[in-house]
Each structure stands twice: as structure tokens, then as C-alpha cells.
Design a protein around this nucleic acid. Structure first.
Length: 555
RNA sequence: GCCUCUGUAGCUCAGUGGAUAGAGCGCUUCCCUCCGGAGGAAGAAGUCGCAGGUUCAAAUCCUGUCAGAGGCACCA
């Protein structure tokens, strides 16, 4: 008896009842209207529905009367132990222990697949995040998106979507030249050029570039600049990929901006040239003051944006357009962008691009804006010069701790990381609370095996302690939580859910023994509880996996 | 000036219209022979920034207002 089964039963009995009260009304009723939720208060039963209150007005009756009528019929459904009507018209359902306990068996059987759902089946989604410039290491601002984006990708996939994760590399334009000049200057022991890149890492890159080809110091500078730039870029990009790997963040595609600028030898045209033509053909482009503009104000922007400057050179916006079209051409119907709050000014422009490309901005593009992250109250920005690099954070607090902390808050919450707290292996650090609960399930399983408790018997009606029904009810919700996290693009819901499961598990552990005390015999109740123990471990592990966090067997 | 986000317990924060608003930390008092006191129970702690509105029902939706953070290039 899953909530889905129960809501289906409720829907089925509702149809004739509604039809009887007002002919034709049943047609307006959809199964998605019939929602069952876990009441916060356990005294309100295992599942609760507000359907009577929502339908009463339409049917010209009062909620309590309607609820009573529904409750009478629901009580005879298989697996339902009792139904009450409470408050203004809530219908509270209690399941019998056997029906509620069945989920433990299901979870153990489905193992790694438990939690997977098909709520986003058929969706083809491009997920772009991080996209840090290849002119320096990843730092704090990228870190939040690396954690959230990677987890979001996992949650979307678990919900049946086809997902491509992508990192866009801004490797064209004069920032790269400044980067090359900075590395070159450092190689000659000179100070950072005007508007160049400062930082120790530039000196390190310079040393490595020179080590690879010492002749760079002897040839004319204007001749070697391109080589400095290119070699340093490759080294830096490799560093970035290493950092991401240590952070357990995976990208399917690293897309370079350069490919958008390259001319096709056959046609002499670049992807950006083509993109400009295609936007013109869609009718959202106009010329003024010698420049070519996109009418982004059609899509909510406060002013129109230049795509081709008066001097004939493309703006960055033109490359964005070509990149968007590339995603579209590669078959992605939905494009999700994760951007920092400092880029929220781009939202209208990106939406305008989508519209100008003939797509529907409300359907084909979604821009998620994340608020700023600080560490120990200090704002860390490139401008202020006190960058905290991802690698430093990883070394300081560890990948699991950092990923979990970044993934457990909604992205629109400004976040201040407490470095010392994240280093703690205690309850103050939520990741350990969850990981410890998982380790405990594994430890119980190991000890159970030694004590001769196995899973040869499963009698769900024996799982009747209040901590067991609470735990079972929560375990049942996992697929729905995953689906909701995917639908709302909010992976933090998974983390919060896992914390709830961990708490419920610890409470159960304190009340119900899997392994009999002392010399007492192993009974079916112990064997059955082992199923529940293992099911909990499975949910914790699967959930942590969605967050990119390890689930250790012992700690 | 305009735009986006935020305002919930002493602190850090959950809570996409439901019942008595929750968790962790911190504080008080207890308990635990299933890893190693990284565990559990109970208690104290709140005008959900403020004011209107919509609704059977608002922390949640709408409007206004106050406070804080960030952003508003023919830069990349």
C-alpha cells in the first residue's frame, strides 16, 4: 500500500460519489487533485487528505458532511485500518501495520533503484553550471553551483529526464589575451600588466609553461605570446577539471567558446555568423547607429542589446546566442542555466535569446539565480583579492562536508559557511549526522549477521511500534521527495529529507532492537526489523548519492 | 532611479494554501549492553519585519511599506 495506491483508491471511490451529488462534476476531477500527505502530527493518522474541503463548495455541501461520506467508503479499502474526520474536514487514514510495513521489503528489493521515478520522463534537459573562466582556479562563487548543479543533474536523471551537464569555457576574447600577457610577464619576472591577472597561480603557471619549453624566454615576445596563452590555458583548464573531480562533480561536455568563433573552411562562416543570420530571420533583430541589436525589450529586458558593434565586431551576447542555438540544435528542449546573483541582469537577455530563436522562454529556458556565499562572515570576491579557492576549501573541510553544506540550502538563500563547523565530526555538522545514521545501519547489519539474525522472514505486521510506523511512512516518501526536488530544481529537499530519516532511524534504534539482548532467542520480529534497518540504509545511501556525498559503512 | 533575492526561536536555517509553525546548535534535566557518548527523551525559547487584501483556511498568494544583500556596458 503506497500513497499512490491509496490516492488511486480514494480517487476511484470519489468519482461515483461526486457524480451522484452533481452530475457532470466528476469530469472536472483529476487524479492529481487527490493528494495524500503525511500529517505533521502523528495523531492525525498515517495519511491525510484535504479533498473534502476543496470539493465541498463545488458540490454545494459542507466539508465535514462530505468528508464523513468519503471516510465511510474509504474505511472498507484493503489495508486501511481506520479513517477519521477531523478539524474542518480533514480525512485521516490509518493503515494496518502489514500494509504500511510492506515498503521495507520493496525498498530492499529495489535497492539502488529505490527513489527513481518517471515524473520527468521524456524531458531532454541541458544543464549548464559553473562555467568558470579558464583564466584562474575555481573559487568560492563557483563552488555553490558546482555542488548544487551536479546534485540537480542527478536528481533530474533519477526522475527520468535525459540530462546533459555542460561547462561553458569563455576561451575567446581579450580576457584570454590579458591572461596570456600576465603569464608571459610573470615568466620574465615582471609585475602584472595593467588590467592583467594578479595572483600566485599566474607565476606557477608561468614556471610550468617555461619548464615545458625553455625557448620561450629567448624568442621575441610578440611571437611567443600566443604560445604562453595557449599552454597556460590548457594547464589551467586541467587544474579546473581536477578540482571538479575531487569535488565529485561531473560534466558531460566542456564546451569552448572558441568553437563558436572558428570559421568553417568550407563556407568561411562561423557558428556566430550563422546565429546572427538565424536571429535576423526570426524578426527580433534591427539595425541602428551602424550596430545590430536584438530587441530584448520584447521579452522584459529594460533596454535592447547590441549583438554586432558598429565596428563590425560581435559582442559577447552574440556568442551567447550562438551557444543557445547550439544547445537547441543538439536536441535540448529545456535549457537550465545556473547563475550567480551578480549575473541576474542576464536573465532577461537569455530569455530574450530564447524567444528570438523562436522558442518559448517560459518553456525552453530556465535561469536559476543563486545568492552569494561567504566564509566565516567574510565576503570573498575576486575584486577584493581574497579569493578562496575550491581546492583550499576541499583541503580544509573535505569534499563530503562541503558538498552537503552547499546542497542543503535553497539557492536563493544567502549562505555563510562556518569553516570550523564544517570540520567537526559531530552533530553540529549535518553531513555527519546523516552519514553516521547510514554507518549505523551497516553496523547493525554486520552485528546482526554475527548474531544469527537474517532476512529469511518478513512479517510486516510485526512492525507496529510508533517509531516503526513513523520511519516506514517517511521511507515511503523518498520517490516523491526526489520527484519534487527535480520538478522544483531544489536538490536541498533531498538533504533535508535525509536528516529527517536519520532522526527517525536513531529514534527507532533506541526503541526497537534488531539483535536480541544477551542469550535471548532470535525471533521473527528481529528478522523483520533487519529488513527495516536495511531499507533505511538503502534510502540514506541513495539519497547521499544524489547529493554526491559518500555513504561510509563505518566511521 | 529601476530590477532580483532575503527578513521565521538567542544563533544557523527548513517549511511551493491546511490542523498546536519545525530542525540542528546553544541552555536545563534525564536515558542508552545492536560501531567508538558522532545516539535518544523531556523542558525553556516565536506578535513568521510591518500594514492591508484574497480564501472555509495565509509564514506561504496579491498590494503597499520598512530593513539588508546583489545587479543595472557597443566589457569579457
Amino acid at each position: 500500500m503506497t500513497p499512490a495506491d491509496l490516492s488511486r483508491s480514494l480517487f476511484d471511490l470519489l468519482v461515483p460519489l461526486v457524480e451522484g451529488r452533481r452530475p457532470g462534476a466528476a469530469a472536472e476531477l483529476s487524479p492529481t487533485d487527490v493528494v495524500l500527505e503525511r500529517p505533521k502530527n502523528r495523531e492525525h493518522g498515517d495519511w491525510s487528505s484535504n479533498i473534502a474541503m476543496r470539493l465541498a463548495k463545488k458540490l454545494g455541501t459542507n466539508p465535514r458532511e462530505l468528508a464523513t461520506e468519503i471516510a465511510e467508503r474509504l474505511a472498507s479499502v484493503d489495508g486501511v485500518q481506520g479513517v477519521d474526520v477531523a478539524g474542518p474536514g480533514f480525512i485521516n487514514v490509518r493503515l494496518d501495520a502489514a500494509a504500511a510495513g510492506q515498503i521495507a521489503h520493496t525498498i530492499v528489493e529495489r535497492a539502488h533503484d529505490y527513489g527513481r521515478n518517471e515524473s520527468l520522463a521524456g524531458h531532454v534537459i541541458n544543464l549548464e553550471f559553473v562555467s568558470g573562466n579558464p583564466t584562474g582556479p575555481l573559487h568560492l562563487a563557483h563552488t555553490r553551483w558546482a555542488a548544487v548543479g551536479d546534485s540537480l543533474g542527478r536528481v533530474l536523471r533519477a526522475s527520468g529526464a535525459e540530462v546533459g551537464t555542460e561547462y561553458y569555457i569563455n576561451d575567446a576574447g581579450n580576457q584570454m589575451d590579458k591572461f596570456g600577457l600576465s603569464v608571459q610577464a610573470a615568466a620574465f619576472g615582471e609585475p602584472t600588466p595593467d588590467k592583467g591577472y594578479p595572483g600566485e597561480y599566474i607565476g606557477e603557471l608561468a614556471a610550468r609553461v617555461v619548464a615545458a619549453d625553455p625557448s620561450l624566454l629567448e624568442r621575441p615576445r610578440d611571437e611567443t605570446l600566443a604560445e604562453f596563452r595557449e599552454r597556460a590555458y590548457q594547464l589551467q583548464m586541467a587544474e579546473i577539471k581536477d578540482s571538479l573531480q575531487r569535488f565529485n562533480v561531473h560534466f558531460d561536455v566542456f564546451f569552448t567558446e572558441q568553437t563558436l568563433h572558428e570559421k568553417d573552411p568550407a563556407t568561411g562562416r562561423s557558428a556566430i555568423d550563422d546565429a546572427a543570420e538565424r536571429l535576423k530571420a526570426q524578426g527580433h533583430v534591427f539595425e541602428d547607429d551602424d550596430a545590430v541589436w536584438v530587441r530584448t525589450t520584447d521579452f522584459g529586458d529594460d533596454k535592447d542589446r547590441v549583438m554586432i558593434r558598429g565596428n563590425g565586431i560581435y559582442t559577447y551576447f552574440a556568442a551567447d546566442a550562438a551557444y543557445y542555438l547550439s544547445k537547441k540544435d543538439r536536441g535540448y528542449t529545456e535549457k537550465i542555466y545556473l547563475l550567480g546573483a551578480d549575473h541576474h541582469g542576464y536573465v532577461h537577455r537569455l530569455r530574450a535569446l530564447s524567444g528570438a530563436a523562436g522558442d518559448d522562454p517560459d518553456v525552453n529556458i530556465q535561469v536559476l539565480i543563486g545568492q552569494m556565499v561567504t566564509v566565516n562572515g567574510a565576503k570573498l570576491s575576486k575584486r577584493a583579492g581574497n579569493i578562496v579557492e575550491l581546492d583550499d576549501l576541499l583541503e580544509w573541510v573535505g569534499a563530503d562536508s562541503l558538498r552537503y553544506e552547499l546542497a542543503r540550502y535553497p539557492s536563493d538563500t544567502p549562505l555563510d559557511l562556518d569553516g570550523e563547523q564544517l570540520r567537526k565530526r559531530s552533530n553540529e555538522n549535518p553531513v555527519f549526522y546523516v552519514q553516521y545514521a547510514h554507518a549505523r545501519t551497516r553496523s547493525v547489519a554486520r552485528n546482526a549477521a554475527e548474531a544469527g539474525v537474517d532476512r529469511s522472514v518478513f512479517r510486516p505486521e510485526m512492525l507496529e511500534h510508533e517509531t516503526e510506523s513513523a520511519l516506514l511512512g517517511a521511507l515511503q516518501e523518498f520517490p516523491r521527495i526526489v520527484a519534487q526536488a527535480a520538478e522544483l530544481r531544489e536538490p536541498h529537499r533531498v538533504a533535508r529529507y535525509l536528516e529527517e530519516i536519520a532522526g527517525l532511524y536513531h529514534r527507532w534504534y533506541d526503541n526497537c532492537r534488531v539483535i536480541p539482548l544477551g542469550e535471548q532467542p532470535v525471533k521473527d520480529v528481529h528478522r523483520t526489523r533487519l529488513w527495516l534497518n536495511d531499507a533505511t540504509g538503502t534510502v540514506l545511501r541513495n539519497g547521499l548519492d544524489l547529493l554526491g556525498v559518500t555513504a561510509p559503512d563505518r566511521m
